[in-house]
Simulated scan of single mutants.
Amino acid sequence: MWGYKVIVCLCLIYLTPTNSTRESEGSVFDQIFEDSLVLPGEIKYTSDEFLHMGIIFCNVTFYEKDTGIETTKHGRQFKNMIRSLFKSSEGTPLHMVFLTDQQSKHFIKQIMTSEIVKVLRAASIGPGTEINDFLNVYREGTPWKFPRKLRVEFADINYFSTTFKEELDHLKLWYGNMGQEEVKIGSDGKTYIYTISRKYQKDLFYIAPFYHKVFPKELKYIAFFDVDLQFKKDLSELIEHRKFMSGSEAIAVGLEQTPHYYLVSVNHRKKYPDSKIGFHGKTQGFNTGVVIYDLEKLRKSEIFDLMLTPENYRTWVYKYYFYGTVGDQDLFTQMYWEVPDLFYILPCEWNLQTHKDPSMSVETEKIYPLYHDCPHEPKILHDNKYIL
Rank of each mutant, 00 (worst) to 15 (best):
K145I: 06
K145S: 11
F146D: 03
P147R: 05
K149E: 14
L150Y: 07
R151L: 12
R151W: 10
V152S: 14
E153A: 09
F154L: 15
F154R: 14
A155P: 10
I157N: 01
I157T: 03
N158G: 06
N158M: 03
Y159W: 02
F160R: 04
S161I: 00
S161G: 04
T162D: 06
T163A: 11
T163H: 09
F164D: 02
F164M: 08
E166H: 04
E166M: 04
E167V: 05
L168K: 00
D169W: 00
H170K: 07
L171Q: 15
W174L: 02
Y175W: 09
Y175H: 08
N177T: 07
N177S: 01
N177W: 10
M178L: 09
G179D: 05
Q180M: 12
E181W: 11
E181C: 09
V183M: 13
V183A: 12
V183D: 12
V183G: 09
K184G: 06
K184I: 12
K184T: 02
G189Q: 07
Y192Q: 10
Y192T: 13
I193N: 05
T195F: 05
I196K: 10
I196V: 15
R198C: 09
Y200I: 05
Y200G: 02
Q201G: 14
Q201F: 06
K202H: 12
K202N: 11
K202Y: 07
K202T: 08
D203P: 03
D203M: 01
D203E: 04
D203C: 00
F205Y: 15
F205G: 05
Y206S: 02
Y206G: 04
I207N: 04
A208Y: 11
P209C: 06
P209T: 03
Y211E: 12
K213V: 00
V214K: 01
F215Q: 11
P216V: 07
P216C: 06
K220A: 05
Y221G: 00
I222A: 02
A223T: 14
A223R: 12
A223D: 10
A223W: 11
